[in-house]
Protein backbone atom coordinates (compact mmCIF):
# COMPACT_ATOMS: atom_id res chain seq x y z
CA UNK A 1 0.00 0.00 0.00
CA UNK A 2 1.19 3.47 -0.81
CA UNK A 3 1.47 5.39 2.46
CA UNK A 4 3.17 8.51 1.11
CA UNK A 5 -0.02 10.52 1.46
CA UNK A 6 -0.21 9.54 5.15
CA UNK A 7 3.26 10.95 5.75
CA UNK A 8 2.15 14.01 3.82
CA UNK A 9 -0.88 14.41 6.05
CA UNK A 10 1.12 13.81 9.26
CA UNK A 11 3.80 16.28 8.18
CA UNK A 12 1.13 18.77 7.20
CA UNK A 13 -0.46 18.52 10.66
CA UNK A 14 2.93 19.29 12.25
CA UNK A 15 3.37 22.28 9.94
CA UNK A 16 -0.08 23.55 10.91
CA UNK A 17 0.69 22.94 14.58
CA UNK A 18 3.85 25.05 14.23
CA UNK A 19 1.82 27.82 12.60
CA UNK A 20 -0.75 27.56 15.40
CA UNK A 21 1.95 27.88 18.09
CA UNK A 22 3.40 30.93 16.35
CA UNK A 23 -0.04 32.53 16.07
CA UNK A 24 -1.51 31.69 19.48
CA UNK A 25 1.67 32.34 21.48
CA UNK A 26 3.51 35.07 19.58
CA UNK A 27 0.53 36.58 17.78
CA UNK A 28 2.24 36.30 14.42
CA UNK A 29 1.63 34.72 11.05
CA UNK A 30 4.10 31.94 10.35
CA UNK A 31 5.37 32.86 6.91
CA UNK A 32 8.81 31.57 5.98
CA UNK A 33 9.45 34.35 3.45
CA UNK A 34 8.22 37.06 5.83
CA UNK A 35 10.43 35.80 8.66
CA UNK A 36 13.58 35.44 6.55
CA UNK A 37 12.79 38.58 4.53
CA UNK A 38 12.26 40.52 7.76
CA UNK A 39 15.75 39.51 8.88
CA UNK A 40 17.18 40.48 5.48
CA UNK A 41 15.48 43.89 5.47
CA UNK A 42 15.97 44.41 9.21
CA UNK A 43 12.49 45.84 9.54
CA UNK A 44 11.00 45.65 13.05
CA UNK A 45 14.15 45.03 15.09
CA UNK A 46 12.05 43.92 18.08
CA UNK A 47 11.25 40.74 16.14
CA UNK A 48 14.87 39.85 15.35
CA UNK A 49 15.38 37.37 18.20
CA UNK A 50 12.07 35.69 17.52
CA UNK A 51 12.85 35.38 13.80
CA UNK A 52 16.35 34.01 14.44
CA UNK A 53 14.95 31.47 16.90
CA UNK A 54 12.38 30.37 14.32
CA UNK A 55 15.05 29.95 11.63
CA UNK A 56 17.30 28.07 14.08
CA UNK A 57 14.51 25.56 14.78
CA UNK A 58 13.59 25.30 11.11
CA UNK A 59 17.17 24.53 10.00
CA UNK A 60 18.57 22.86 13.14
CA UNK A 61 15.84 20.39 14.06
CA UNK A 62 15.64 18.67 10.64
CA UNK A 63 19.46 18.47 10.80
CA UNK A 64 19.25 16.66 14.16
CA UNK A 65 16.19 14.51 13.42
CA UNK A 66 16.84 13.43 9.84
CA UNK A 67 19.29 10.61 10.73
CA UNK A 68 16.72 9.25 13.19
CA UNK A 69 13.40 9.61 11.39
CA UNK A 70 14.05 10.10 7.68
CA UNK A 71 17.63 9.13 6.78
CA UNK A 72 16.59 8.58 3.17
CA UNK A 73 15.29 12.13 2.75
CA UNK A 74 17.01 14.07 -0.03
CA UNK A 75 16.21 17.22 -1.93
CA UNK A 76 17.01 15.88 -5.43
CA UNK A 77 17.61 19.49 -6.42
CA UNK A 78 18.74 19.96 -10.02
CA UNK A 79 22.50 20.18 -10.52
CA UNK A 80 22.04 22.93 -13.11
CA UNK A 81 23.32 25.92 -11.16
CA UNK A 82 21.92 28.44 -13.65
CA UNK A 83 18.42 27.09 -12.93
CA UNK A 84 19.10 27.00 -9.17
CA UNK A 85 20.25 30.63 -9.10
CA UNK A 86 17.46 31.89 -11.35
CA UNK A 87 14.86 30.00 -9.31
CA UNK A 88 16.27 31.27 -6.01
CA UNK A 89 16.23 34.88 -7.21
CA UNK A 90 12.64 34.56 -8.45
CA UNK A 91 11.44 32.94 -5.23
CA UNK A 92 13.16 35.63 -3.13
CA UNK A 93 11.88 38.58 -5.18
CA UNK A 94 8.42 37.16 -5.80
CA UNK A 95 7.58 36.16 -2.23
CA UNK A 96 8.65 39.56 -0.88
CA UNK A 97 6.79 41.56 -3.53
CA UNK A 98 3.70 39.41 -2.94
CA UNK A 99 4.31 39.58 0.82
CA UNK A 100 4.00 35.84 1.35
CA UNK A 101 4.69 32.31 0.15
CA UNK A 102 3.30 28.81 0.60
CA UNK A 103 3.25 29.06 4.40
CA UNK A 104 2.06 32.66 4.89
CA UNK A 105 -0.41 33.03 2.00
CA UNK A 106 -1.06 29.30 1.65
CA UNK A 107 -1.37 27.71 5.08
CA UNK A 108 -2.09 30.79 7.21
CA UNK A 109 -4.04 32.80 4.60
CA UNK A 110 -6.34 30.09 3.31
CA UNK A 111 -7.19 28.90 6.83
CA UNK A 112 -8.52 32.38 7.71
CA UNK A 113 -10.32 32.62 4.35
CA UNK A 114 -8.19 35.60 3.31
CA UNK A 115 -8.98 36.60 -0.27
CA UNK A 116 -5.39 37.77 -0.80
CA UNK A 117 -4.01 34.47 0.48
CA UNK A 118 -6.32 32.45 -1.74
CA UNK A 119 -5.64 34.55 -4.85
CA UNK A 120 -1.86 34.49 -4.26
CA UNK A 121 -1.98 30.70 -3.87
CA UNK A 122 -3.97 30.28 -7.08
CA UNK A 123 -1.46 32.43 -8.99
CA UNK A 124 1.73 30.81 -7.71
CA UNK A 125 0.32 27.33 -8.30
CA UNK A 126 -0.78 28.26 -11.83
CA UNK A 127 2.60 29.85 -12.54
CA UNK A 128 4.42 26.84 -11.09
CA UNK A 129 2.31 24.38 -13.06
CA UNK A 130 2.82 26.29 -16.33
CA UNK A 131 6.56 26.54 -15.61
CA UNK A 132 6.89 22.78 -15.12
CA UNK A 133 4.80 22.14 -18.24
CA UNK A 134 6.92 24.51 -20.32
CA UNK A 135 10.39 23.76 -18.98
CA UNK A 136 9.92 20.01 -18.51
CA UNK A 137 7.63 18.94 -21.32
CA UNK A 138 8.14 21.59 -24.00
CA UNK A 139 11.81 22.52 -23.48
CA UNK A 140 13.03 19.48 -21.54
CA UNK A 141 15.42 21.44 -19.31
CA UNK A 142 14.16 20.55 -15.81
Amino acid sequence: MNVEWLWGLAGGLLIGLGAAVYLLCNGRIMGASGILGGLVERNDRSATTERLAFVAGLIGVPFLLRPLIAPQAQTHLTGDMAIVILAGLLVGVGTRIANGCTSGHGVCGISRFSLRGIVATVFYILAGGLTVALFRHALGVI
Binding site: A87, L89, L90, V91, G94, H105, F123, Y124, F135
Partner: peptide, 11 residues
Amino acid sequence: GSVLFGVGWGL
Protein backbone atom coordinates in the same frame (compact mmCIF):
# COMPACT_ATOMS: atom_id res chain seq x y z
CA GLY B 1 4.95 38.69 -6.99
CA SER B 2 3.03 35.43 -6.78
CA VAL B 3 3.61 34.72 -10.47
CA LEU B 4 7.38 35.36 -10.13
CA PHE B 5 7.45 33.15 -7.04
CA GLY B 6 5.51 30.42 -8.83
CA VAL B 7 7.92 30.38 -11.77
CA GLY B 8 10.90 29.98 -9.41
CA TRP B 9 9.04 27.36 -7.39
CA GLY B 10 8.30 25.37 -10.54
CA LEU B 11 11.86 25.66 -11.85
